[in-house]
């Protein structure tokens, strides 16, 4: 569908589906803390080699800015394979070599348990029952948010075929496994006696572990792998956010007749502005747990779920209800985070006498969905203009090629399939 319609951003789809461009701002906003996390990762790695922190931050920012300003989207894509090989190598060496040095995983888990016993309830080696809802909602919220980000969707939408999307989706568990191994390195760091740094707190655990346990040259290689591993997604994110702005805001509202050159120049400037915004998050956001930056991004981007994911299935929602739901979700999630002083993304939700710790993204999404579902019939009843759905059922079902017409798409479909679509279209789109 994206190839047929020429969609590059999720906001492109929502503009056609619901005749609304409100989504673009959320994508740009939500990308900033995520980029901040990547810049911070590069900063911590450079600082671990003894470089003063201010200089580390400046270097991290300059590397990212120069990289994206000169090369666009293609260089990060080219570098991705090398980056993955470097990171896989470092992680595999770390989970095999360091545990052998420390006497095996048995010793490591023993050391972690001893720390949990000694901490008197502030640290747990196994998830306590009270944290189950927080963990479950964090997993659910993060999983749903992942494919709503402009950078992941831009990657998917710009692929050549469904086959590529399927193949990449099949390979994704390999990355999840890698992340599991990296999480295990947190336990290894405890067993190796790594203490939180006074400046970077426990965010420095892995670089400090590498610096302590690896020889100097391999530690240097590991930090380079971390830096490249952070640079590539940060570059893709800032470019995706910039293209979201130029395609869905600048060209649509400010300069509809702009040339491709003007669009590219605007994208470069916006990409730089997004990175400056990310820098502001590093300077002003409490970074006791840097992962909160990503979790904040998740809370914001998850609020686009009704328009993007549910929009794929139905156009029943009223576009004004979607916008109000989006704002309601953003406001709820942000207020929950503010009430926690930006130190945690888990909010203790009180339901009568029951208090359930939940990842703020999930209750915010519930508020968003409730607003969408309740306000849609109301707006329809009041006759508020709903815009026009420019997508067709054939867009969703056929195997289109760029430039093909709707009649060609319909002719590709089996008679049964066509009946199903016609029937479903009648239910979902009674106005057409």
């Amino acid at each position: 569908m994206a190839r047929h319609r020429g969609y590059v951003t999720p906001a492109d789809f929502v503009r056609d589906r619901f005749d609304s461009s409100a989504l673009a701002i959320t994508g740009i906003l939500a990308t900033m803390p995520y980029i901040a996390l990547q810049i911070y990762g590069i900063e911590v790695s450079i600082a671990q080699m003894g470089v003063p922190i201010e200089i580390s931050l400046i270097i991290a920012f300059a590397i990212l800015a120069a990289y994206t300003y000169t090369s666009g989207l293609r260089a990060p894509a080219m570098i991705a394979v090398v980056k993955d090989m470097c990171i896989w190598l470092v992680v595999l060496v770390a989970v095999i070599y360091i545990p052998i040095k420390l006497g095996g995983f048995g010793n490591i888990f023993k050391a972690v348990h001893a720390k949990a016993v000694a901490s008197g309830g502030t640290f747990h080696d196994v998830l306590p029952a009270a944290e189950y809802p927080a963990y479950a909602t964090l997993a659910l919220g993060s999983a749903l948010a992942l494919f709503l980000y402009p950078h992941t969707l831009t990657g998917i939408l710009s692929t050549n075929s469904r086959k590529v999307v399927r193949r990449n989706a099949a390979l994704l568990p390999a990355y999840t496994f890698l992340i599991g191994l990296i999480c295990l390195l947190g336990y290894v760091a405890i067993a190796a006696g790594i203490d939180p740094s006074p400046i970077y707190k426990s965010n420095v655990a892995l670089p400090a572990l590498f610096a302590k346990e690896f020889s100097a040259w391999f530690a240097g290689f590991s930090f380079a792998a971390i830096a490249i591993g952070a640079l590539t997604p940060a570059a893709i994110m800032s470019i995706a956010a910039a293209s979201l702005f130029t395609r869905n805001i600048y060209r649509e509202y400010f300069h509809p007749t702009c040339t491709e050159r003007e669009e590219a120049n605007t994208a470069r400037t916006v990409s730089l502005a997004v990175k400056v915004g990310a820098l502001a998050f590093i300077l002003f956001f409490p970074l006791t747990l840097a992962i909160n930056l990503q979790l904040l991004s998740n809370i914001w981007i998850l609020q686009t779920l009704p328009a993007v994911f549910l929009g794929l299935y139905t156009n029943w929602f009223h576009r004004r209800a979607l916008v109000i739901g989006l704002l309601g979700g953003l406001l709820t999630g942000t207020l929950m985070i503010i009430s926690r002083g930006f130190e945690s993304s888990v909010f203790p939700l009180s339901l009568g006498s029951l208090t359930i710790p939940m990842y703020a993204a999930v209750p915010a999404l519930v508020v968003n969905l409730l607003l969408c579902v309740c306000l849609t019939p109301l707006f329809k009843l009041l006759g508020v203009s709903n815009g026009r759905d420019n997508t067709t059922a054939a867009d969703f079902e056929a195997h289109p090629v760029a430039g093909s017409s709707e009649s060609l798409l319909l002719s590709q479909m089996t008679p049964n399939g066509r009946d199903d679509i016609t029937e479903r279209e009648g239910v979902l789109n009674p106005t057409r």
């Binding site: 790695s45 450079i46 080699m49 003894g50 470089v51 990289y67 090369s71 293609r74 260089a75 990060p76 080219m78 570098i79 090398v82 980056k83 470097c86 610096a211 100097a216 040259w217 391999f218 530690a219 240097g220 290689f221 930090f223 380079a224 792998a225 830096a227 490249i228």
Partner: peptide
Amino acid sequence: MVNWEMLGVFIVVFTAVTILAFWAFMLSPT
């Protein structure tokens, strides 16, 4: 204090990978 051995390897690896990306970028047909 800066660990020059670590920093040296960091700079070499980082620069090599970046150059590789730009080289591939320059060679790509579009």
